[in-house]
Computed example of a mutant assay.
Amino acid sequence: MSTYKERGVIFPVDIVPRPNLDLVKNFDIRDDDIMMITYPKTGTWWTHQIVKQILASEGVKDEKYLGDFPNLIEFSVPEKGALAELFKTAPSPRVLATHVPVEFLPSGLLGSKAKIVVVMRNPKDTAVSTFHFWQKVPEVKTPESWESFLEQFLAGDCPWGPFYDHALGYWKLKDSHNILFLKYEDMKKDLPAEVKKLATFLGRPLSEEAVQAVVGATQFDSMKKTVKQHRDGAFTRKGVIGDWKNSFSDEQSRAFDDQYRERLSNTGLEFEFE
Rank of each mutant, 00 (worst) to 15 (best):
K5H: 15
E6F: 08
V9T: 04
F11I: 03
P12Q: 13
P12A: 13
V13P: 00
D14T: 14
D14E: 14
P17Q: 04
P19N: 03
V24M: 15
V24S: 14
N26Q: 14
N26M: 12
D28H: 15
D32S: 00
I34E: 08
Y39Q: 06
H48F: 10
I50R: 03
D62N: 07
P70W: 04
I73N: 12
P78A: 00
G81R: 10
A82R: 09
A84M: 09
T89Q: 13
T89G: 07
A90H: 08
P91I: 12
P91E: 11
V95K: 03
L96K: 04
L96S: 04
A97L: 03
T98V: 02
P106H: 05
S112R: 01
A114G: 04
K115C: 01
V118N: 06
M120L: 11
K124C: 08
A127T: 07
T130G: 05
F131Q: 04
P138M: 06
T142Y: 11
P143Q: 03
S145D: 08
F149T: 01
L150E: 02
L154K: 03
D157T: 07
C158Q: 11
G161F: 12
P162L: 02
Y164H: 11
G169K: 01
Y170I: 01
S176V: 10
S176D: 08
H177C: 07
H177V: 09
H177R: 15
N178Q: 01
I179Q: 05
K183S: 09
D186G: 05
D186T: 05
D190S: 15
P192A: 15
A193Q: 13
K197T: 13
L198N: 00
A199N: 02
F201W: 04
F201E: 07
L202H: 02
R204Q: 06
L206H: 00
S207D: 02
E208D: 15
A210S: 14
Q212G: 13
Q212H: 10
V214L: 05
V214G: 01
G216C: 01
G216I: 03
T218L: 07
Q219E: 07
D221K: 15
K224S: 07
V227H: 11
Q229A: 15
Q229M: 10
D232P: 00
G233E: 06
K238Y: 02
G239I: 09
V240T: 14
I241Y: 05
K245F: 10
K245V: 14
N246Y: 07
D250L: 06
D250I: 07
S253L: 06
R254M: 09
D258P: 11
D258N: 12
L264N: 09
L264E: 12
F273L: 01
E274L: 09
E274K: 14
